[in-house]
Amino acid sequence: MKALAARRHDRRAPVVLLLLALLLTGGLYAVLAPASADAAPKTASTDDIAAGEKLFQANCATCHGPSAAGTASGPSLIGVGAAAVDFQVGTGRMPAQMSGPQIEAKPVQFDDEQISQLAAYVASLGVGPAIPTDEQVDPALGDPANGMALFRTNCAMCHNAVGAGGALSQGKFAPKLWETSPRHLYEAMLTGPQSMPVFNDANITPEGKRDIIAFIDQQGDTAPGGMTLGALGPVSEGLWAWVVGIGLLIGAAVWIGAKSS
């Protein structure tokens, strides 16, 4: 008993306890966390406006209204086009999880067929931008150098020089672009979701948009110089200079100082 009591006061005890608690929490989370929705098998059925309407009434009408004309809590969807639906639902932003400064991307809630049905329904309500073809968004066909020029004039002020993302006012932000699919990139430019301005075809031509996609694809998170450190620029470089550089060097200094002379 005495030995046990003495060990309880070991000064390493809190650290060990903390580690155990962390391990337990992490383990429980790994076991209990909801698994991401399984992707439904892709079926190549034709767009079905009626099926889309049914989905809309069940999942979207609460905010966007039964006729998609909008309510106090959601905008009208008449005339937003299939591209907007494909982007919003296809990146998981819609249906929205909760209101906040910004509706954020999350695991996609519908399968591809359902998304195309929803898109078909919304497109049937009014004329709007269509989903781009694979050729329109193929980065291999774009000119990354022209994309660089367009990107830094039109996109970099919010999305960072290479698309690492950046802050907007009041908790809103421009997201990182490296994980977004070319089609969704194109649709975002075309429809201007949330705080993003619309870049219609008069602003940036379809070829220009493809060049931008080529630039993001080509440059994005590339790192000829080693780890990118988030491609965030001098702040993260400075942080790492202090943490890694000065950290290691002070460690070495303490070691040298402790060496018997």
Binding site: R152, M157, A161, A164
Partner: peptide, 18 residues
């Protein structure tokens, strides 16, 4: 990443060295 100087563009996260 930043490209050649041009007075018009300013990217998000534009900061000097620490």
């Amino acid at each position: 990443n930043y490209g050649p100087f041009d007075p018009s563009p300013v990217s998000a996260g534009a900061q000097p060295d620490w």
